[in-house]
Design a protein around this nucleic acid. Sequence first.
DNA 1: TCTGGGGTCCTAGGACCC
DNA 2: TCTGGGGTCCTAGGACCC
Length: 454
Amino acid sequence: MFALVDCNNFYASCERVFDPSARDVPVVVLSNNDGCVIARSPEAKAIGVRMAEPAFKRKGFFARHGVRVFSSNYALYGDMSRRVMDTLGRFTPRMEVYSIDEAFLHLKPTPDRSLQAQASEMRETVRRWTGITVSVGIGPTKTLAKVANRIAKNTPKMHGVCDLSCSTNLGKVLEGVHVSDVWGIGRRITKKLAAVGVTNARQLRDLPDPWVKKRLTATGLMTVWELRGRSCIPLEDAPASKKAIVTSRSFGKPVTTWTQMREAVTAYTARAAEKLRAQNGVAGQLMVYLLTNPHRPELPQYSNSRTVRLPVPTDHTPTLLAAAGDATSAIYKAGFSYKKAGVMLTDIQNADARQLSLLDLTAAPAAGKVPSSSSQNGVRQGQTTNQQESNQKSPQQDMPRQQALMQALDATNSKWGRDTVTYAATGLGRAWKMRQNHKSPRYTTNWEELPLVD
DNA sequence: TCTGGGGTCCTAGGACCC
DNA sequence: TCTGGGGTCCTAGGACCC
């Protein structure tokens, strides 16, 4: 059986664990840049704070109702998440960490302990060990476990656990679930379904396969089968490595100069490269995009992106920085007020595979052998050729040195904190840095910010 | 003044090949 | 006059998730 464990109001709950003054009052957590509401305590929900609301529109409301406002503190949430997941891992050998606050588990009933009993004990243990309250939903498929979890969360008398694994009136249960609350059914599909009179999960379950396949595609059909109790989405024990790595941020203040834009893209690229190395990957392609603020239609609007194919897949930050710099200068236009930029690394392979292709490359003296689909990606031919030349000076000699440097960089930043060592091109002022005016201390991950006990 | 960030999968359609 | 069929790869766009 599948169990879905989900932390209740996770970010808001994390803030409360270390700040008792935030208990029993409405709490909201804001997105990066203190932009939108992304987490709410039950009290905040009760007074009508909605998810994804822009915070600036509610400033007065928050003040009047004594709402405690926090900036996102991912160092704290990430560490609390790890504690919760470690605790859950003691209850099963098979578990998939699905998001920062959710995990799917395989649970088996035993003669002396029902699934319900196991789930309750798990829930109590997590609460005692981490201070976080979770809800547990159990079902024969992931989709039904999700349904069960939702019911557990919304039905106080269930005390946080709902077991649908052998429910005899599943049809009745599904009748009470709106299609938009089914995992995999989003806004668009909800509309499509409403057009044919389907509004609850039971109706969705009972639709004919051919109609579903045609109108909702193969993914929709899987959802329907899962609602019928046929498991189609397996538990992914081992986290798959990422096929794309994105680092993007909205700017704290609009960026209007090339210098600032280059700093920002440099910083994002360096961060993306760190993530890439953390999963032992090399990227074959890099994309930079930038855009103005679409919420200000009265201002001149511009957005563009540029993809660069790297001559050799790499995880070497300076090489990636050079490519990102070329891409940025190709699309940056002066005279606009930029709101956001991002860097995406794609065509990611395992770094060990890279070694083999590098040997191939060095064995063949002709530089022209390097595969290049640059014309497809809009890269100017001259630029690509230059990179090939600069990279091929002596890859065999450079590689170990490059790797050693990157390892030292990552190790230093891991030990002493992010950005202990950074590239000068990321700038010192960082005027574009995101706003975080309400950030709580990194209670659990920074010695300087440990909570003090009197 | 102020509106997040990071992913995955599927499909359709075009290019190209034999 | 007449103009195949099957396959692969790539990309853009749509849709979903948290």
